[in-house]
Amino acid sequence: MESAVVVFHLGPLAITATVVTTWGIMLLLGLAAWFATRRLSLDPGPLQTLVEGIVSAMDNAIRGMLPQRSQMLLPFIGTLWIYVLVANLTGLIPGLSSPTASLSVTAGLALLVFLSVHWYGVRSEGFVGYLRHYLRPSPILLPFHLISEVSRTVALAVRLFGNVMSLELAALLVLLVAGLLVPVPLLMLHVIEAVVQAYIFGVLALVYISGAMQSQQTVSDSNEEGGT
């Protein structure tokens, strides 16, 4: 269910409903972030406690995989979780469609994950050092490494797109066939699926990035042990 409805044109760019929805989500999240953090204090209230709990939970999840790099990865991984979750849930609002039901969106996010893996890997060990890990444990595995990079990125995009699009399509079909209240259980399943898919997308991104960074760290550690 690819949504290619063009809302307006911005010069040569055709602004689709997906982009407009994303802008709305960005505005909503920006305002929510400003509202939640405008009066932070050392003695937190209920809202600040909730906000700190969310951030701490994400930080702890990242810290579990990369204890030393959680501060660096939190903005990217945390934004993936939040954005994908809100985008997934947007489909529950009548008249709106989930941006993540668009392959263009999930492909863009997957591409960002793909690039971020290399970006953080290069930042961690340098360009040559990072590229060297494709030759380990044997240069013969280089094609498989490259295929793996592409296939897991494609899988990341298609998995999220397929799950969200199929849920919305299933809900639409049930609504057309059975009536008004019958799709409600399916919508509840949509909520669970939205949370699960957001979590999976972010965790996979975290696993890919941490794999790139920890592979360099493992090599460095093994070299240090060999040197000593």
Binding site: A4, T16, V105
Partner: peptide, 14 residues
């Protein structure tokens, strides 16, 4: 199918 404009804008938006 992939709308490249949406694809690019989504990357920028994110």
């Amino acid at each position: 199918e992939v709308d490249w404009t949406t694809f690019a804008l989504e990357i920028i938006n994110f």
